[in-house]
């Protein structure tokens, strides 16, 4: 199967799209409405100084219904997922959850997925893990692989076809 099934919004994914929208509405109604813009999240955001992520602004934009602006913004992809915004929010708003939902919607709407996510996803579909066994270098510049170190065999899905069939259901499932 191709990764397109999972990451773009072809016709079979209309249910997925509905689900994402439902989730976002829920976040919007039940969580972000309580935000009183104290910006404690942004004061402590790990990505703010480096990449100008402003979680409180994301929440405010979502409250104003500016979904399109948000899913097209590169800044939603700068979150380091440290969870500090969620942990310390005085109103139990979870900007990180909103960011995850926005990224998912961006993907479902066929926006370009940045960086290596696509490659990692492809690898998961192929062999179950984000990458296969790597060759690493020691401090003395010799190269080693898993087998050289006497470690047991890699644990990964035994039957690739069945594993993929499971994941296919996410793409094809009708809610």
């Amino acid at each position: 199967m191709s990764i397109i099934d999972l990451t773009s919004m072809g016709e079979p994914q209309s249910e997925l799209r509905k689900e994402l929208n439902d989730r976002l509405t829920k976040l919007q109604d039940e969580i972000s409405d309580y935000c009183f813009q104290c910006a404690r999240c942004t004061s402590g955001c790990e990505a703010h100084k480096l990449l100008e992520l402003e979680p409180h602004k994301i929440v405010a934009l979502l409250k104003r219904g500016l979904l399109n602006e948000l899913i097209n913004a590169d800044v939603i992809w700068t979150c380091m997922t440290c969870q500090k915004c969620r942990e310390r929010c005085p109103q139990r708003v979870a900007p990180i959850e909103i960011l995850f939902a926005l990224k998912n919607i961006a993907v479902a709407n066929g926006k370009q997925i940045p960086g290596k996510y696509t490659a990692m996803l492809q690898s998961i579909l192929t062999m179950g893990l984000i990458q296969d066994v790597q060759q690493t270098t020691t401090r003395t510049n010799t190269t080693v692989k898993r087998d050289d170190l006497g470690l047991p065999p890699l644990s990964k899905p035994v039957d690739a076809a069945k594993f993929q069939a499971g994941i296919m259901k996410i793409a094809m499932e009708k809610v």
Partner: peptide, 25 residues
Amino acid sequence: GRPSEVRPMTDHLKIDIFDTTTNKL
């Protein structure tokens, strides 16, 4: 704004505060 934390440094305390009146940290 609300600071996220107060950091005790060697000889002072450090506070990052995002000020929503100027939109600056």
